[in-house]
Amino acid sequence: MAIKSKPRVKVPSEAKAGEIIEIKTLISHEMESGQRKDSSGKTIPRAIINTFTASFNGKPFFEANWFTAVSANPYQAFFYKASESGEFTFTWKDDDGSEQSATAKLTVA
């Protein structure tokens, strides 16, 4: 199943230089494991989001490679050390080649 709904991201809008902030993300996806069978006994093929990346001002700083053991509607929280104002880009890559992204602005005082 392709990615179909808008991801949700929770990031503080302001931080002090050097402050470590927590970023929380959530996206709707079945994360079909490839282990389940349908009512006729046929295996339902694997279809998951396999890669999540986070960048700041175009520079990647965090990546997660998700496997079939990741729960449906994957939640991912992680951290970032603020140094300058700019924009986060978060990207989710699906097994089917589709991608979804979200952005968030951060102001460093």
């Binding site: 700083f61 997660a64 496997f67 990741v70 994957p74 939640y75 992680f78 951290f79 970032y80 140094s83």
Partner: peptide
């Protein structure tokens, strides 16, 4: 996870900009 159909759960790649090598996720066991 050593009792799942497949052993891998997640792989994280951190950088100094991560600030903390910490993450939270929800998984199937």
């Amino acid at each position: 996870a050593d009792g799942n159909p497949l052993p891998q759960v997640v792989t994280y790649k951190f950088t100094p900009q991560s600030g903390k090598a910490a993450a939270s996720i929800r998984m199937r066991l």
